[in-house]
Design a protein around this nucleic acid. Structure first.
Lengths: 147, 147
DNA sequence: TCATTAATGCGACAAGGTTGCATTAATATA
DNA sequence: TATATTAATGCAACCTTGTCGCATTAATGA
């Protein structure tokens, strides 16, 4: 399932999670639905503990991590490791098969402690004979809401 | 002590560590000297355990971290958090007071497991009213030596 | 309705990093 | 050179983040 699809689904008012379950042959569970609901509503990259705090269903830490990693495998979520060493997860847009899912900048606000996916694509020029397969770029500072 | 100075010192064959001790009013200890020696000789960003392995002097884990963080405060070393969540430290060049010490890309090679400071400066354009104070940009892939 | 097995909860664990505190030793001063 | 000061160190304990094994639960297909 391409992530660009998610936006189309939202516009068409199709339940993303149901669609995801059918497409990826995943079971429809309350916990998974809750995790995805939080991520899609917040539209930010969130850490496991931040996600749990926003959830109405209680669930084990290991379970949340398993769900998030599953979402990453299925490519409906991508993972960022911030400069605090923690993993953050975000539902993000990616329509082109060829692009790296993490090809944009992220912004971590030190005041509100959230991470945002910026629309800016990372332009890099690696030296000759270097093969770039992934990237993890985080800008750190204060976002417009906290300034 | 500005980091650009380090290169000048090397050219002039002045002992960097002695200079550092006088300038920053730090005590001259074998452990600190060893850590800096490893970092300057390898010219890569290294993790605490990688540094220890290369050292001829034995030292406690906590001590190494304290030394590295002190070097960061004194701005002769900068810290990168890679996508594996670990901290890496590198002696790097920075001549301009105004630039962010981490303003360049880093490359983590998944084969030789090292992190290199690339000469490429990160060009970013944060949205309006976002204040960027730090950055942490890591490209991941295979370096020229491992290809 | 039942069988299959994906998903979960629990507990244990590992790695990475930090902190408190007593001890050691580098430096400044007499 | 001897002494006082205190930065630097070692050790142990601790915290946080993330993972894994295994028994149990429950979603799905037949």
């Amino acid at each position: 399932m391409r992530q660009g699809c998610i936006n189309i689904l939202q516009v068409c008012r199709i339940n993303i999670f149901d669609y995801f379950c059918t497409m990826m042959k995943r079971r429809n569970t309350a916990t998974q639905e809750a995790v995805l609901a939080v991520l899609t509503s917040k539209r930010r990259a969130m850490s496991q503990d931040a996600i749990v705090k926003q959830m109405d269903v209680r669930a084990d830490r290991a379970t949340i991590y398993r769900i998030l990693n599953r979402f990453c495998e299925d490519e409906i979520v991508h993972k960022i490791v911030a400069d605090d060493g923690k993993q953050y997860f975000a539902v993000c847009i990616k329509c082109d098969e060829k692009t790296i899912s993490n090809n944009h900048f992220h912004f971590r606000c030190t005041k509100c402690e959230t991470i945002e996916c910026l629309p800016t694509i990372v332009e890099f020029s690696a030296p000759q004979n270097y093969k770039v397969q992934q990237m993890n770029c985080v800008l750190v500072g204060v976002c417009k809401d906290c300034d």
